[in-house]
Lab assay of single mutants.
Amino acid sequence: KKSYVLIKVKNPKTKETHTIVVPEENLEEVLKALASQPNVKVVDIERFP
């Protein structure tokens, strides 16, 4: 059974918020990819039960 993680990201320029759902096993690479985006800020990470 896969567990999923909900990542909320915000664009500081446009103030838009997006929610991305990723499998927990991919969380680290997704966070690394997001960290390299200049106008993306991770605001929240939630685990799915």
Rank of each mutant, 00 (worst) to 15 (best):
Lys8Leu: 07
Leu34Arg: 00
Glu28Val: 10
Lys2His: 14
Leu27Val: 06
Glu28His: 11
Pro49Ala: 09
Lys13Leu: 14
Glu29Ile: 10
Glu29Asp: 09
Lys10Ile: 15
Asn39Tyr: 07
Val43Met: 07
Asn39Ile: 03
Lys15Trp: 13
Val5Trp: 15
Pro49Val: 11
Ile7Ser: 00
Ala35Glu: 12
Ala33Arg: 11
Ile7Asp: 00
Ile7Lys: 00
Val9Arg: 00
Thr17Val: 13
Asn26Asp: 12
Asn11Asp: 10
Lys32Ile: 07
Pro12Phe: 15
Glu25Thr: 05
Thr19Trp: 08
Lys1Cys: 15
Leu31Phe: 02
Phe48Asn: 07
Lys10Gly: 04
Thr14Gly: 03
Asn26Val: 10
Val21Glu: 05
Glu16Lys: 13
Ile20Arg: 02
Pro12Cys: 15
Thr19Ile: 08
Lys8Gly: 02
His18Arg: 14
Pro38Ile: 07
Asn26Ser: 10
Leu34Cys: 02
Glu46Ala: 13
Asn26Pro: 00
Ala33Pro: 00
Ile45Gly: 01
Pro49Thr: 12
Thr14Cys: 05
Ile7Glu: 00
Lys15His: 12
Ile20Tyr: 12
Leu34Thr: 01
Leu31Trp: 02
Lys2Trp: 08
Lys8Gln: 05
Val21Ala: 04
Gln37Gly: 04
Arg47Phe: 13
Ser3Asn: 11
Lys8Ala: 03
Leu31Pro: 00
Lys13Ala: 11
Arg47His: 08
Glu16Asp: 05
Thr17Lys: 05
Pro38Phe: 04
Arg47Tyr: 11
Glu29Leu: 14
Asn11Glu: 03
Glu25Lys: 05
Val40Asn: 06
Leu31Asp: 00
Glu29His: 09
Asn39Met: 04
Lys32Val: 07
Val40His: 06
Ile45Ala: 02
Ala33Val: 10
Arg47Trp: 13
Val5Lys: 01
Lys2Gly: 15
Val42Trp: 02
Lys15Thr: 08
Glu25Cys: 04
Lys15Phe: 11
Thr17Cys: 08
Pro23Lys: 11
Val5Met: 08
Lys32Glu: 09
Val22Ser: 02
Asp44Arg: 08
Lys1Glu: 14
Lys1Met: 12
Asp44Pro: 01
Lys1Ser: 09
Pro23Phe: 15
Ser3Tyr: 12
Val40Ser: 07
Pro12Glu: 15
Lys41Gln: 15
Tyr4Lys: 03
Ser36Glu: 10
Thr19Phe: 11
Glu16Arg: 11
Ser36His: 08
Lys41Trp: 08
Phe48Thr: 05
Leu6Thr: 08
Phe48Ala: 06
Thr17Trp: 07
Val21Pro: 02
Lys13Gly: 12
